Simulated assay, not measured.
Amino acid sequence: MNEILKNILSRRSIRKFKQEQIKDEELQSIIEAAKYAPSAMNQQSWHFTVVQNKEVLSKIVDSIKLAYKNLGEPKPENFNPFYDSPTLIIVTGDEKAIAPQNDGSLAIGNILLAAHSLGIGSCWIHILNFIFNRDEFKDLKRELGIPEGYVSVAAVALGYKDMEGKAAPRKEGTVNIIK
């Protein structure tokens, strides 16, 4: 089996990370892979916001907790949807593009695979869509440097693994081949 297929078949979501920050060269390689994802009409409608600052990560977590509390669904004090990862990549897309959600999702796929190929754990995080697309969080988006008119696609937690992922069985009956 070739290396690309091995990488695809062996990548798993990681939800426990060491606190050691990933290397800048590794981060640059991961971002470069993201920027080479396919996109509708080659619009490359994505924007990547990398957060490695612990205080900023805490502020994002606190914003998420506040949003849930305001909905009457408070989260526990130790709740961290990013699993205490040292790096978070927030992927947003230009709402005026043809397919910003699809473009961003393909970029995230590249992020996940590139990280795995470098021995870095990753986990797709969807919870930011809950807060980022709400008016009361416009200031946070601005503070993070997310361009006006960009909508949340998802985020990726990154860090060196402090666990091994295990593959769930694949569902049967998900493929039709018509010849």
Rank of each mutant, 00 (worst) to 15 (best):
M1H: 12
E3T: 12
E3R: 15
I4A: 07
I4R: 14
L5C: 08
I8G: 12
L9R: 15
L9A: 09
I14W: 00
I14Y: 00
R15V: 01
F17M: 05
I22F: 01
K23E: 14
K23S: 06
E25Y: 05
L27H: 01
S29W: 12
I30Q: 15
A33N: 09
A34V: 06
K35F: 12
P38E: 11
M41D: 09
W46E: 15
H47L: 10
F48W: 01
F48S: 11
V51K: 04
V51C: 07
S58E: 04
V61P: 07
K65D: 00
L66V: 13
L66Y: 09
Y68A: 12
K69D: 08
N70R: 06
E73P: 10
K75M: 13
N80M: 08
P81E: 04
P81W: 07
P81V: 04
F82H: 03
Y83H: 02
Y83N: 02
D84H: 07
P86I: 02
P86T: 01
T87S: 09
T87R: 15
V91D: 08
G93W: 05
K96T: 14
A97C: 14
P100Y: 06
Q101P: 03
Q101T: 05
D103E: 13
G104N: 08
S105G: 05
L106I: 15
A107Y: 13
A107K: 06
G109F: 14
L112S: 10
A115L: 04
S117V: 14
I120L: 00
S122Q: 09
C123W: 00
I127K: 03
N129D: 01
E136V: 02
E136M: 04
F137C: 05
D139P: 02
D139N: 08
D139H: 04
Y150K: 06
Y150N: 12
S152G: 15
A155W: 04
V156N: 07
L158W: 04
G165I: 01
K166I: 09
K166S: 15
A167P: 03
A168K: 09
P169K: 07
K171M: 15
I177E: 14
